[in-house]
Each structure stands twice: as structure tokens, then as C-alpha cells.
Amino acid sequence: MDLEYFQPSDILKPYVKHYYLFVSAEDTEFEDTVFPSGDMEMIFNLGDGVWEASLGEKYVRTPKIELWGQVTQPLAIRSKGKHVMLGVKFFTHSAAYFLNDEIGVFNDLVSDLADILGGPIKMLYAQLLEAKDITKRIDLIETFLIKKLISSEKRSFKIDKVGDILSSLKQKPGETSLDRIATTHGITPRYLHKLIYQNTGLSPTAFNKILRFQYSLKLIAKNDQPFTSIAYESGYFDQSHFIRDFKLFTGITPSAYMDNLTPVNQLLFQ
């Protein structure tokens, strides 16, 4: 399995964290679990392989053009066959620029983007299948995204506001008072919560928790310090709070996670 990352053009850097290409040339089967990341993704499945995501007690085949909503709990997936996946990873708030729906409706779901965006995204998918060169494929995606960005100009003020708020939360991850956060940005706590949820699918508290959790994953991957140190460095009050949140987002303890790194997780931290 190979995973490559590609940076967006300057015009899309405020909206797209990166593009990635995942290629699995071996006809193998494996199961994995996706953890909350705080970001949404658009994925084009250009190979013949099959992906399935858990929905309740059953698995459902994912569409050729996927929209990954906010994952707020462990989401089991499984794979069969050879894959070519071209993905677009957005920042926490920036998927809202390209979608007309309230973002929370997509939480913990892998939706069919063709049902949401219709003919234009279907045409893009057909063009991606024809274009074999990765540079050409990314150019096609960027042209599509820029057109969508221009059409969302009327909504951009509110989404920009959310981006500013999230940036300030990242700088002060220990800040939990909605009153203080709201006052800083000149809005009420109720409107702050509504604004962030509508445009990210997360509450301010959930965003902070996922932020700390993701940072802890990076520290765990280095495997060079005890869990107590990781907990404090990630912004937790103590190790017990760290383990509680880790189990909430992964379904397992940090120790069990280290003992069971999956193929996709190993690629992510290379």
C-alpha cells in the first residue's frame, strides 16, 4: 500500500489541507477503524476495489464518490480488492464552503456525493477516470472546487467567522468557557455554539476534545514517552481523563492501540 500527499494551489490553501492518493495494488482483504479527526473528506474511488463502512450492526458498501462527514466515534470499515483512491481533506470548517447543507447532517456517515452535488460531481468523476496523470487529476478537482467556492460567496462571511474562532481555540486549547470565547468574538454563547455546529458538525467542546486526541495520536506514534507525559502534553488534566477520551474516540485503550496499529494507521504516521 502506498499513500502520497499533495499540496493545494495558493488559492485553495485556506480551504484544502491536502490531497492524497492511496493505492493498494494487492488483492487483499483487511478491516480497520476510522477515528475522529475533526476534518471532512471527499474521496473519489477510481479503482475496482470495494469499501464498506459500518452502519449500526451491518456493513454498507460505500459509493464511488464519497463524502465523509465528521466522525465523532470509532467507525469500522473493511476493504476488499485493489484500490486507487484520490481524496480531498478539508479543514474543520472549510467543507461548508462547498456544501449547501448544514454540516451536522453528515455526521458519522459516508454519504454519496453524487446525490448531494448532482451532475457536476458525476462529470468530474468521469473526467478523473479518463485522466491517468495525478497532476491532471488534481487540476480537475481544483477547477471544480474553485467554481463551487465562487458560488458560495454569499455564505463566506459566516464560514470565515467560524474559521477565525477555531483558530483562536487551537491557540488556547485549554479554554472551555463559551462565555469568554463568545465575548472575544463579539457574539453570544448561544450563537457561537450554533454557528460552529452548523458549519463544522461539531460543538466547540467536541472540537477541543478531538484536537487534543489527534495531538495525542501523534505523540503515541513517536513511542518515546510514557502515557502520563503524553496526557499532560496533549492538554489533559491527568492520565485518567486522557484514557477516557481515548477510549471514547477509538473504543480501545492507548496501550491496546499501540499493540494493534492497522495498515492505514501505520501509513498515516510514516
Rank of each mutant, 00 (worst) to 15 (best):
D2T: 15
L3C: 01
Q7R: 10
Q7N: 10
S9T: 09
I11R: 07
Y15N: 05
Y15S: 02
H18I: 03
Y19E: 01
F22C: 09
F22N: 11
V23D: 06
A25P: 03
E26D: 11
E31Y: 06
D32G: 02
T33L: 02
D39H: 09
E41R: 11
M42K: 10
N45C: 09
L46G: 00
E52Y: 03
E52Q: 14
A53H: 11
K58H: 12
K58I: 10
R61T: 14
T62Y: 09
T62Q: 15
T72V: 08
L75A: 12
I77L: 11
S79R: 15
K80V: 06
K82S: 10
H83E: 00
V84I: 14
K89T: 11
F91N: 15
H93N: 06
H93P: 00
H93K: 04
S94K: 06
Y97C: 03
N100F: 08
D101L: 07
I103E: 01
G104A: 09
V105C: 08
V105T: 13
F106W: 08
N107P: 01
V110C: 10
D112I: 02
D112Y: 09
L113V: 07
D115F: 07
I121G: 01
K122A: 10
L124Y: 00
L124I: 01
Y125I: 02
Q127C: 07
L128E: 04
L129N: 10
K132R: 15
K136E: 14
D139I: 15
D139V: 14
L140S: 10
I141V: 14
T143V: 15
L145G: 03
K147E: 15
L149R: 11
K154A: 13
R155K: 11
F157G: 07
K161S: 10
K161F: 15
V162A: 04
G163D: 01
D164R: 14
S167D: 12
S168D: 11
L169E: 00
Q171F: 15
K172W: 12
G174D: 03
G174I: 00
G174K: 05
S177Y: 02
I181N: 00
I181W: 03
A182N: 00
T183F: 14
T184C: 12
I196Q: 04
L202A: 07
S203C: 06
S203W: 03
P204N: 10
N208P: 04
K209N: 09
F213R: 06
Q214K: 13
Y215L: 12
K218M: 07
L219K: 12
A221C: 06
Q225D: 03
F237T: 07
D238Q: 07
Q239M: 09
F242P: 04
R244W: 14
R244D: 11
R244L: 12
D245T: 05
L248P: 05
T250D: 03
Y257M: 01
T262D: 13
P263D: 11
P263H: 11
Q266N: 13
L267T: 02
L268Q: 13
